[in-house]
Design a protein around this nucleic acid. Structure first.
Lengths: 363, 363
DNA sequence: CCATCTTGATAAAACGCTTAATCAGAAATG
DNA sequence: CATTTCTGATTAAGCGTTTTATCAAGATGG
């Protein structure tokens, strides 16, 4: 049983701060003012310690005491009302639960927002257009400072009409009409980095298993792959580029084609694909990375860090995507009105790319 | 360039709804009232279509038009202020990004909250106590209807003092002083279900690889395992219970001990452990499920659904945990003040437990 | 001793909305 | 025709803050 303190103003109450308690009428600034024998204006000034405010030491003390005593909490909504602008930032995501990715975007956004005194209003739409409209409406009605519109995989997106009623930043997606600011991963650099992970180990005949599903990642990573080869003076061989549905089953199935081509290393479109490939390779008695070096993409923690051997991969900067999103939204990071900002995908070397094999492979 | 409509009240404007536009002063109810030539009271009544309000058809039409014309959105914060109670529900999570689990809790909570016209205020604390205090303060200041306090894995938790200033529900955790309402997964039933998945296939000598890390899951699942055996009339053999750190490496390492004991099936504490075990088994030339049937726990999508063969497992009801959390919070699901509600962990049979092997194994 | 400053605090308006109370006029009633 | 009853709306108070303008009184200066 929670003891319900009935009498509100009792001066003889316990000296320690007493919480408002559930069900009790919330304590307002008026209550504090009355308890301290001052006006609400005074209380307000003390709380926000407005400089230039002339308030005596005694009043200050009395107010502080009253606040403690009553367990007063300012009403943020009332503050918002008078200030005109709220401390909310909306984040609409198309798939919060399906992957860990969305979670990382939320995490990054939330951390950064928090840092600047903002709070995240999160809505999950599961791609449902109506849910999306509702979510945005709700956010606009809460007078959010702006909205982050995010997708769980990097893609072009149709920007909902209503979004344009406020400031918005696209995260992990970009508008297909080229308008609006967007933060996306740099797929090309990522592809280059992944390939370099292999090149550094001396590999020269490197296959690329691309996705069958059209996406910026598909074209971007291929571009990066070619770029890296070119930079090393290796001719691009179209016969070494394969395609598979980007999941474990796809990777498993793709293994067959890889063999007998003199390929010593593979760059997989993503970690899941690599995971499937592991199975297929192992089944054929091929060792990783000795017989075949592998790098993935995404750095999907659950998988990459715990495969056998641990998978060298390239990370998608989801956390940073979210954080940069709010920075751009808040104008902390400057960005042209229709800028598309590309964030680096950092290399995450582990063991599957091989190590110190350069000598063996070099000739 | 977005065309900035400067003149606000123009009657000759485009008939289609015109959005407020960024940077523009927001459209208030006053504006609508003026445009329609009525008072704000009238507008308010029309918007919320208060029954009992006596308003002529013509005024109705004019107001609707003005709303459309101006692109008016009610200010939810002002509404909250007058109603006294907000439509916010706070969700504080200790690890939003680390696992997909938290995401699913958020998802469930958000869906259910939404259904009842509530919005989620999400805060991520990464276990940091100060962040936690700040998050809760923030939520209280926003006058949330209540708070969901969630953890990414099922455990006892210290309930922060401040939480008690409002309604709260513990999600995926429970207070170590036994106070407060909590929603947790039913680990025992889960353990039983997992074991039954194997028993159903005719297995009789079933090992259990438990976690080394103390947790309700560890004791609960073991209990369930024993319960299932007992129900089938199989004597519990302590020699068949092993322990390993609950990740892939742990599972890989545990394989050794399993062999030569006549064990035909293993129940793994979680999917990651099972994944590691897969590797170890395969390395020894053992086929799953023919030589060794395996079930996991957690139904971690990325892993379970895509192992080779797909892993039979038991799902943690994260989505439901979140949803039930808000239902209890809102009083839709009744729950005693200190009730701990256990949600079922449903079986998720795939192929690793074997199928139709009952005959072969029976004798 | 009167004018002026300074100090410490207050009153009141405003933010955007809801709602109870009120009001003016038209229609119905006696 | 005077009165009551509807009808269709308006007024105004209030929600919990912030903030500007104002005020009373004591201290200071001439």
């Amino acid at each position: 049983m929670t003891s319900e303190e009935a009498s509100p103003g009792g001066t003889g109450g316990s000296p320690r701060r007493r919480s408002a308690g559930r069900g009790t009428q919330p304590v307002t600034m008026r209550d504090v003012a009355d308890a301290a024998g001052v006006s609400t204006a005074t209380v307000s000034m003390i709380i926000n310690d407005k400089k230039g405010a002339r308030i005596g030491a005694d009043a200050r003390r009395r107010v502080r005491e009253a606040i403690d005593e009553l367990g007063y909490r300012p009403n943020a909504l009332a503050q918002t009302l008078v200030h005109g602008s709220s401390r909310f930032i909306g984040l609409v995501a198309d798939a919060i639960a399906t992957t860990p990715f969305a979670g990382q975007i939320i995490h990054g956004a939330q951390d950064e927002a928090w840092k600047h005194g903002f709070v995240l209003l999160v809505a999950n739409t599961e791609g449902n257009e109506e849910a999306e409209r509702d979510a945005i409406s709700m956010m606009l009605e809460h007078k959010v400072r702006g909205i982050l519109y995010s997708t769980w995989f990097h893609r072009a997106a149709e920007v909902p009409e209503a979004l344009r009623e406020t400031d918005f930043v696209l995260v992990n997606c970009f508008s297909n009409d080229g308008t609006g600011r967007a933060i996306v991963p740099d797929e090309r650099q990522g592809g280059r980095t992944a390939t370099e992970l292999l090149l550094q180990q001396g590999h020269r005949r490197i296959a690329f298993i691309n996705a069958t599903t059209p996406a910026p990642a598909r074209t971007g990573r291929l571009l990066g792959y070619r770029e890296a080869l070119a930079a090393t003076g290796i001719a691009f061989d179209p016969a070494l580029v394969f395609e598979a549905y980007p999941d474990q089953e796809g990777g498993y199935g793709a293994a067959e084609q890889l063999l007998g081509l003199g390929v010593t290393a593979v760059f997989c479109y993503n970690d899941r694909l690599a995971m499937g490939l592991y199975d297929a390779l192992r089944q054929r008695g091929l060792a990783i990375p000795e017989d075949m070096a592998v790098v993935g993409f995404d750095n999907q923690e659950v998988i990459a860090a715990h495969l056998r051997p641990p998978l060298s991969t390239v990370a998608l900067p989801h956390y940073e995507l979210g954080a940069a999103g709010v920075r751009v939204l808040l104008g902390i990071d400057a960005a042209a009105p229709d800028a598309v900002i590309r964030l680096a995908c950092p290399a995450t070397p582990r063991e599957s790319a091989g190590e110190g094999l350069a000598d063996r492979r070099a000739s």
